[in-house]
């Protein structure tokens, strides 16, 4: 039975990656839940976010994935946040939406709708902020996946 894991990251800069889930060479990450919300002072701004597949990871701070079942093993897939060098994206926005800063965005995959990484090293999915309509709110991403 697949084990489920979660990780999170924040980003306050537009056109930058907030969180990535990187598949392992022996296991695939099947992302089935993504949440995006904003912290800070509520304001009316549009947050344009996208989820893209990348083929080569960039330079970021590692996040320790948390097992959703505390008795599960340590995750084999990796997760990163706060990128100083962006991953190499494949150029397809598998998910591309905008939402109000006061809102909470959630994405639930249905069967056969999960985002699956390949077993190639450095392959995964990145959640990024494409643009803010005004201001620089802090966007928090949370992703859950099975492996």
């Amino acid at each position: 039975m697949a084990s489920a894991y979660g990780s999170g990251g924040t980003i306050a800069v537009a056109a930058d990656t907030g969180l990535t889930v990187i598949g392992g060479t022996t296991v695939k990450a099947r992302i089935d839940y993504i949440l995006a919300s904003c912290s800070g002072t509520p304001a009316d701004a549009t947050i344009d976010i996208s989820v893209q597949q990348f083929t080569a990871d960039g330079t970021g701070t590692a996040v320790t994935p948390e097992p959703l079942d505390v008795d599960d093993r340590v995750a084999l897939c990796a997760s990163k946040k706060t990128y100083s060098a962006e991953p190499t994206y494949a150029g397809i926005n598998v998910l591309d939406l905008g939402f109000n800063q006061r809102s909470v965005f959630q994405w639930y995959a249905q069967p056969n709708g999960e985002l699956v990484s390949s077993k190639a090293a450095g392959d995964g999915y990145g959640m990024r902020v494409d643009a803010f309509s005004t201001g620089t709110p802090t966007v928090q991403f949370i992703a859950h996946w099975k492996e």
Partner: peptide
């Protein structure tokens, strides 16, 4: 559907 999106208003 292949996924469901919810946005709180």
């Amino acid at each position: 559907p292949k996924s469901i999106i919810t946005i709180d208003d």
